[in-house]
Each structure stands twice: as C-alpha cells, then as structure tokens.
Design a binder for these strands. Structure first.
Length: 109
DNA sequence: ATTCTGACGTGGG
DNA sequence: CCCCACGCCAGAA
C-alpha cells in the first residue's frame, strides 16, 4: 500500500508539481485528495512555504471559484495572471474564464 | 496562554 | 451567482 509518511506539505508539493501545463486546480481539491478536506487553508499555507521550491507552480492553484486569490503573494501584482494567460488560460479581473474546462483533478498524472 | 488572521470550503438563506 | 456564519490548522503578536 502507498505509505503516507511524508508530511502534509510534501504531499501538497507533490500534487501541485504534477499539475500539467495549461491546467489549474483548487486548494480544496488538493486538500481533499490528501485526506485533509476542510483544512484547505493548510494547502494555501503550504503554498506559502513552497516559495523555496522551484517546481511548484503555485500560480496554477486557485480557490474553488477559480479566483486568483493568491496573486498578491507573488512578486508582481499581475505575475500570476500573466503566467496563466501565458499557458492559454484566459483570466479577467483575477477570475479564470472556463475554470471547469481548465480544471485539473489531483491524482491524474 | 490567548487572540486574530489567513493563498479555503461548505452549508443555509 | 451573492451574502453570512462556522470549521479547519498553523503561525504571528
């Protein structure tokens, strides 16, 4: 059986790192996948710590509404949106267009 | 130790 | 879809 000795943060990084190009997911989806449903805030906290990690595209992780709630935590004010648009994702007023269409479900490599 | 806040989510209205 | 209240865990003051 898959052991889950890794820390919660490590798991979050693992999942986020697997997000394919041009796709996005939500904190809750990740939290739920990790079995920490309800503690989606911890996922966001993990993302905060992920700033040191190079392969963790935090810009591909948004809230359940597809809103770029964390854009303020990036270097620039529009860096997150710019990155998403660069991947073919339309973003208007911090809101991802066709969010469901670009949504990526955790666990699917 | 207590209190508040926070990159969220869910449920009820 | 909106708004309001609560739950969740970790960290800062």
């Amino acid at each position: 059986m898959p052991k889950e000795n890794e820390n919660f943060f490590s798991k979050v990084y693992e999942v986020v790192r697997q997000i394919p190009y041009g796709k996005v997911t939500s904190y809750g989806a990740i939290a739920k996948h990790l079995g920490a449903a309800g503690s989606a805030r911890m996922v966001g906290w993990a993302m905060n710590a992920s700033h040191n990690l190079p392969d963790v595209p935090a810009h591909r992780v948004v809230n359940r509404k597809g809103l770029l709630t964390g854009k303020h935590h990036f270097k620039g004010t529009n860096l997150m949106q710019q990155l998403l648009e660069s991947e073919g994702i339309a973003v208007i007023d911090n809101q991802i267009q066709d969010f469901e269409k670009h949504f990526w479900h955790p666990g699917k490599s």
